[in-house]
Amino acid sequence: MDTQQLEKETLEKIDQIVKNNPVVIFMKGTPQMPSCGFSARAAQALIDTGENFGFVNVLADPAVFEFLPKYQDWPTFPQIYIDGELVGGCDITLELAESGELKKMMAEANAKHAQQDA
């Protein structure tokens, strides 16, 4: 497979993950075993809300690691998506967690997706 084809397929795969998950974090490592301080802090903020979320370990998928920055033109990891929209990286997620906004956004997205699946 050539690079262009791989890029196209990877971006489609990322898009599906973002659309199919009310809340998803693309991170280095896993929430239980993060490989980077920024990913660790962002994942912990998500855990602390008590809400459900999905994760993708970008270190386990070289194509996702390479092409995710192009998806929403965001250059760094982690990236947090809620209800299909890029929320931001570690800094913004922690700011939203501090203000209580994060839990609200996650709860709303989870409720909305649960309704769609029903």
């Binding site: 033109d73 965001w74 250059p75 890029l86 929320v87 931001g88 990286g89 913004i92």
Partner: peptide
């Protein structure tokens, strides 16, 4: 916040 971070990220693209 997202737009603000983009403005700074873009400087260091």
């Amino acid at each position: 916040p997202l737009q603000r971070h983009r403005m700074v990220n873009d400087i260091f693209r």
